[in-house]
Design a protein around this nucleic acid. Structure first.
Lengths: 297, 297
DNA sequence: GGCATTGATATGCAATTAGTATCAATGCAT
DNA sequence: ATGCATTGATACTAATTGCATATCAATGCC
């Protein structure tokens, strides 16, 4: 069975006339009769009851007509969705994110994208930057919002925002009471850090500044995710530098303080595989224009 | 687009290899490539990313693959349902019934039918015999359970049951207290009848017997349906002969009494258009075998 | 670096679909 | 009742196109 048979049958069933249907299909009547006959022979089912003066649907024909319309609808939808997908109006997009960007800024961008491209299914994955890079390489992600450096030549990326580092301290902590912090104030302080395996270089500028000022730090607690890290700090286990955007998250017992000047901002980049030019992806990347260097992120 | 294109594409997308797919499809590789190319050109969408060593789906291809599977499923279902319909396993059947047959007997037959033919959609229409005949003629019904006579030459029918007539009387009525009724007892009695327009001959044998015994009747109330008729009787408006099967229906204030001997049984027939040989209909008719002359109906 | 394997291309052929001419049957109008 | 117009079927021809064979260029792998 081919779609031609289905199209022809629906035309005849709707017109209840071979000649009429043939005209509608811009073809001659004999080949139309032949095709319908072939369809009936393949199905081994009589679909139409013809006399020389009239055409009627058999019971099987009535049933088949319903199904035939469904087939044509499915095929039309298949064509449409393929075209949509080619224009970036349909499809799926798997995007990696890190916890610090999951704030109002990204929510706004995603909302706009979903409004403009309702046919695209967005799947978000909360992963570390390292894991995102692995999955981008393995084609398990289409894009990722993560921290540089990238380090994979096959990936392209662009900066989409930057943010200061701030200090997260337990409420009532010694440093929470100080008005203006200096690097030597961190001497002997206990730190709550994200485990090195899920981290590449985020703390390095902080460590360097402390070392330069002669402040020796004491890493005492390692967490695997941001939520645990913030909880440990609020529970008084120590202090830690954090991205300023996390200040959006209020938590009892947790306060934020400005760090001494001199730290480079934390950058967020959007990365994707180069030479994998999905129009959906292109639209998604455009949603991050223009570059927001002064974003609160 | 033809189903051939869809089938070929799904094969290639699943194998991710033209040669492999061609083998699976029992054809050579070059024509397969040509067909996929034709499909892509018609859709104006690149579905597959090929190098000389590997085949990958594009994003549009991934979307199209999903839809393509739906198209194939729809077409397979269309073929199956058409075949089922031809064997009487699928389709719809519009059946007319009259209130007196809507009892346990018919319920059992219909339940059996629906179990054996779950693909057939049964639509029941509660109509008078007269209206059923009109709709059978107009092809608005496929079968009807009704009272003879039929009177239309294009219809075929068979007896499916018969039932005595009994007398419905209000509780406490004069005739309800009598042990054994005679025809002359009906002299001067008030009758509750179904309106003549919805009735052909049901009361005639009763009228004839009364007249023969010299009992003059007084029709005082006409109802349009059985429910109203029974309600009127229970409310004391009069008495009426009724089909014995309605004794299944208990109603406060309503009792049934045997009529004097001599009335012919009320027959129920199953009627359908001759020369309209739907296998669904045939199966339905078979459900009424064997002939149930001693049915309580 | 050689080799086997992959998808693309070129070309001839076969199958099938569409078109033309015509016929028999039937409903309708006179 | 009867002639006529219209319908779907049939016979045959023409054109399309889908398929197979032979071959090539590119690429991953040993």
């Amino acid at each position: 069975m081919e779609l031609r048979h289905v199209r022809y049958f629906v035309a005849v069933a709707e017109e209840l006339s071979f000649r009429g249907a043939a005209e509608k299909l811009h073809m001659a009547q004999p080949p139309l009769s032949a095709q319908i006959k072939a369809l009936e022979e393949e199905l081994r089912v009589r679909l139409l009851e013809r006399t020389t003066r009239s055409v009627r649907l058999t019971h099987a024909g009535r049933v088949f007509l319903e199904e035939a319309r469904a087939v044509l609808a499915a095929s039309a939808q298949a064509e449409q969705r393929a075209r949509d997908a080619a224009q970036g109006l349909a499809g799926t997009l798997r995007v990696g994110i890190i916890a610090p960007v999951a704030g109002a800024w990204l929510a706004g961008i995603l909302r706009r994208f979903r409004q403009r491209f309702p046919g695209v299914q967005l799947s978000l994955f909360d992963l570390t930057s390292t894991e995102q890079l692995r999955r981008l390489h393995a084609r398990e992600l289409d894009a990722g919002l993560l921290r540089p450096p990238i380090g994979l030549p096959e990936l392209d990326y662009k900066f989409v925002g930057e943010s200061r580092q701030v200090l997260a301290v337990p409420a009532g902590h010694r440093l929470a009471r100080k008005k203006r912090l200096e690097w030597k104030d961190f001497h002997d302080e206990e730190l709550v850090l994200i485990h090195p395996s899920a981290q590449h270089g985020f703390y390095d500028p902080f460590f360097a500044a402390c070392a330069k000022a002669g402040a020796r730090l004491r890493p005492v607690q390692y967490a695997n995710d941001i939520q645990t890290k913030m909880w440990l700090i609020s529970a008084g286990f120590g202090i830690a530098p954090t991205t300023a955007t996390l200040g959006e998250v209020k938590r009892p017992g947790l306060v934020f303080r400005a760090l001494p000047a001199g730290l480079p901002p934390v950058q967020t980049v959007l990365a994707w595989r180069r030479g994998d030019p999905s129009p959906v992806l292109e639209h998604f990347c455009k949603g991050f224009e223009p570059f927001m260097s002064l974003s609160i992120l």
